[in-house]
Design a protein around this nucleic acid. Structure first.
Lengths: 177, 177
DNA sequence: TTGACAAGACCGTCCAGCCGGTACAGTAAG
DNA sequence: CTTACTGTACCGGCTGGACGGTCTTGTCAA
């Protein structure tokens, strides 16, 4: 299990995300990822026997990172609700001009089912948010607005200006109470 | 311009959307589209000399359809605002369980720039909505929530139940005033 | 007959996955 | 200590197949 020089697995995952972000989701080939990770193609295939496994690894990595970040935010003092934590986390995520998850498009092209765990995660998160409020309408609006913000970031959409995004987040936090 | 049997161009566009929707965005090849459209590959390439042109046609077709539908809604009696029309139109669009625009993923994989006209269109729409209200915060929330709803539909996400979506739309219409 | 349009074989390119190698760490017998 | 063996981590050339785009050969309406 231990790697001799470094953890190739993580390097490869990071490289895959970088390639998709910088060269476009259509350019996410095994060779490109291997080269970017400073690993040979054979080495990549050793860690991820198949491209599907690589995609799966990307999804799992993304989800566990997200989970960790959300938990950290929610545990911070001064957060009255998980929803607020989610809003702030998403706002920070969308701060970055470059979409960090373009690899999702590659995954969808490969097989739409790769996103199933992400859908399940979102539903789970939604259920959790439902438990801490009695105003389902407001929650829905907030939840979907965040979804919209994330989606725009994913599509690298500069439809909203910086100040508009800030106003949006402020308004959402007010609604969230 | 006139076609001998039917309008091949539209048939091809529809076939492309159908292939992306049913076989997955990764399966949108020229041969698959041609076959689905009941046209030979040569015939397809006659109408769209290149795959890029086909994608472009898909985008333009989508945008003009959307524009027409929105204008029709906005012109209907009883609509007090374009925002309401946009909300209702989007609600109806998302009624269909199958995402009608999976081809967008193929376009992104081909070249993310294909979506530039869509971004421009959205910005334009947003500017238009801004002019009919003085509550920018509420508009942002509504606009992004719609974006989120559309995004979930696009990703074929069944995160929200039917009744939840209805409540969402009702709440949005209330916010929109 | 002609020319607009369609057919599909064909070519070059690209890529996922395979496979035969290499290097090295740990183990253990002599 | 040394030699032989084993399993892990990684390398990179190869191949078979798929796909985009070209080209030649039809075909049918006027």
């Amino acid at each position: 299990m231990r790697a001799r020089r470094a953890n190739s697995r993580e390097k490869i995952l990071a490289a895959a995300a970088a390639v998709a972000r910088e060269a476009g989701p259509g350019s996410l080939s095994l060779e490109a990822v291997a080269s970017r990770a400073g690993v040979s193609k054979g080495g990549l295939l050793y860690n991820f026997p198949t491209k599907a496994k690589l995609m799966q690894g990307l999804v799992e990595n993304y989800l566990s990172d997200f989970q960790k970040a959300l938990e950290a935010r929610a545990a911070e003092a001064g957060h009255e609700s998980v929803l607020s934590a989610y809003i702030k986390l998403s706002a920070d995520d969308c701060e970055q001009p470059k979409p960090s998850a373009s690899w999702m498009f590659s995954a969808i092209a490969e097989d739409p089912d790769f996103l199933t765990p992400i859908k399940a995660f979102k539903r789970q998160l939604f259920e959790r948010l439902k438990e801490e409020t009695d105003d389902l309408g407001s929650l829905l609006v907030c939840f979907l607005a965040i979804e919209g913000m994330r989606s725009m970031n994913l599509f690298d959409s500069d439809v909203l200006s910086e100040s508009e995004r800030q106003l949006l987040v402020a308004t959402l936090l007010k609604i969230a109470g």
